[in-house]
Simulated scan of single mutants.
Amino acid sequence: MNVDADIATAAIFAFPAEKQIGLIRRTVDVLDSKNGERSFGEPYLRRTADTMARRMAAAGIDGNTIVREVAAFRKAVEDESIRRFLDKIGMRRAK
């Protein structure tokens, strides 16, 4: 009996970080609540990204994918922050 033939394999994919809209908006809410001082919110953003990375690593996601997903998450947070700012000053254009 070939034991290797009985072992099933599966690919693990990370849910795209830029699609985690609730987490992105919640992160921007926290950053915005820090009295406009982005540097006070940075530790929260770093902790959120670190937690995301640890969860992906525990799920078996490879390191390169984790780096890409965390970078995509941080970019999505920045994009949402900019979108909110442009909305606030009335400068955002409709798509």
Rank of each mutant, 00 (worst) to 15 (best):
V77L: 02
D79L: 04
I61G: 01
K95H: 07
F13Q: 06
R38K: 06
R55N: 15
A49K: 12
T48C: 06
G63Q: 07
I21Y: 08
P43Y: 01
E37T: 06
L86E: 13
F15N: 10
A71W: 08
V67E: 15
F15S: 11
R54H: 12
E80R: 03
A49Q: 04
E18T: 04
G60W: 05
K88L: 07
A71R: 15
G22K: 10
F15W: 10
D62H: 13
P16G: 02
D62G: 09
K95V: 09
G63S: 11
A94Y: 11
S33K: 08
D29P: 01
I66V: 15
D4A: 10
V70Q: 03
L86T: 14
I61R: 00
K95A: 10
I82L: 14
A94M: 09
V77A: 01
T65E: 13
F15H: 11
I89K: 14
S81D: 11
S81E: 12
K95C: 05
E78T: 05
D29C: 09
V67Y: 13
V77F: 01
F85S: 15
T51Q: 13
A8K: 10
M52K: 06
D87K: 11
A17C: 03
A94R: 09
D62L: 15
R84H: 10
R74K: 15
A71L: 07
D29G: 05
E69Q: 12
K19I: 01
K34C: 08
G60Q: 03
T9A: 08
F13G: 03
V67F: 13
N2W: 05
I24Q: 00
L31P: 00
R92W: 07
A72Q: 06
A10I: 15
P43K: 00
M56I: 04
E80A: 11
V30M: 08
A72S: 15
K95F: 09
A53D: 02
L31S: 00
D50R: 08
T48I: 08
F15M: 05
D32V: 04
K19P: 00
A57I: 05
I12W: 08
M52C: 02
R68N: 12
E18N: 07
I82E: 14
G60E: 04
K75M: 06
I7T: 07
D4T: 07
F15P: 02
Q20L: 09
R55V: 05
K75F: 08
I12F: 10
A71Q: 13
E18D: 11
A53G: 05
E80V: 05
S39N: 09
R74N: 11
M91W: 14
V67D: 13
